[in-house]
Design a protein around this nucleic acid. Structure first.
Lengths: 229, 229
DNA sequence: GTCTATAGCTGGATAGAC
DNA sequence: GTCTATCCAGCTATAGAC
């Protein structure tokens, strides 16, 4: 397989992730190591050498598989994002099927939050939540366009769903409510200890079941009762 | 003045910021340029060369005044943070003087949010909000300890104030409510365009008066009605 | 105090052997 | 396809002239 062919064959790889990871265990190890190091140190803070060392592959293999550091960075999102987006879409469909509007709002909020908050539980992509949090809050992400391309479409679906469940709210109110949810969620996903420290252990972001219960009820209250009147 | 004397003479500089900035206009220009570039590109993404170029000073002057890149980084926070913390403390005192518990909760929430949300309006520290947002969400900030040293004390005061206004809530509920507020606030402060893009302009984070109205009412609702029951 | 010049590294990327 | 050796641009920090 030609070199530039490989790094651009994203559609192909997505349709055969399992075989790609079986066939190229080194590639999967690089992704996994990069995910953790980018999450911890940021795109600029983590070096390709560090990543290759952690993945136990020679340095040149990273360039061979992913073309460049940014190619590797994008590949992480191309591998992990579709599953999150799909889970959210399924959640939205479930909310659509619910008749009671109170309960429907709750399902919309949960469809937004739960696919992300439960990421910590999944061993394979344990650090992806923190990485995604970084990308969402990084101003430079506007240039990369990863969030725009992969997450904006489903975000618009959520905003539309909220408009339908809360028809008396202004466009600004709906959108600010959505952003408050995203902000709180990203803060929890990216946290590395300040929450536990400040709360003296009363909040444990590692316990994603308790975390979800609290965050969902707080944000549901914000969305439901937070009209500026 | 000796070199190492300068970079460590923080207490002295804080007590005479005005004269220090008048006496060393280059120093103030470096801080200002660094604030914008660190906010935009992150600590690792911005180089000292870029900062010196933007501040129109020779490269070596940065080391002379601040000792190291991290010294410069800390100096920004040492210059800007005290004013924010002070404004928050004053807000908490005002809340304490309010008898009506409903209104008191609102004052506590506003005391937390307004000093930060209005940062964009102030020309001198226009980008400090984005920089602070980055530092709060960066896992590496735990090592630097800037947030812990400068902001944890007043954070604990807020959590205590919330406990007093909402005596029926558990410790976990209070702390999660606080973290939801911080997350939403940091998200807005660090935003560089996604909010306006997703809302098709319905949300304009540059309009900090409208932003404050919406964010405060959403978060007040979360804190007031977001008990997990 | 200020600035030029540069030391000493580390970064991403690649050439070319196998 | 895989890996060693290396290129060279860019980095932080500093020595030393003025």
């Amino acid at each position: 397989m030609k070199r530039l062919g490989r790094q651009n064959a994203i559609a192909e790889e997505q349709s055969e992730n399992a075989s790609a990871e079986t066939e190229h265990p080194a590639r999967a190890r690089i992704i996994s190591a990069a995910e953790a190091l980018f999450a911890e140190l940021g795109f600029d803070g983590a070096s390709v050498r560090q990543i290759a060392l952690a993945a136990k592959v020679p340095l040149a293999l990273v360039s061979y598989h992913f073309g460049s550091k940014e190619g590797l960075y994008r590949a992480i999102f191309e591998l992990r994002a579709p599953s999150i987006v799909e889970q959210r879409q399924v959640g939205l469909l479930l909310a659509d099927a619910e008749k009671d509007p109170e309960r429907r709002l709750e399902l919309v909020v949960k469809a937004l939050l739960i696919p992300m908050l439960k990421l910590r539980r999944e061993e394979k992509s344990a650090r992806f939540g923190a990485l995604l949090a970084r990308e969402v809050s990084d101003p430079k992400s506007l240039d990369r366009g990863i969030i725009r391309d992969m997450f904006d479409p489903v975000a618009r679906s959520f905003i539309q769903a909220m408009r339908e469940v809360l028809p008396d709210r202004s466009n600004a109110e709906i959108n600010w409510a959505y952003q408050v949810m995203i902000g709180a969620m990203v803060h929890v996903m990216g946290d590395a200890g300040r929450i536990a420290r400040l709360s003296d252990g009363a909040c444990d972001p590692e316990d994603d079941r308790q975390t979800t219960v609290h965050i969902v009820s707080l944000l549901l209250a914000a969305v439901r009762y937070g009209s500026k009147m």
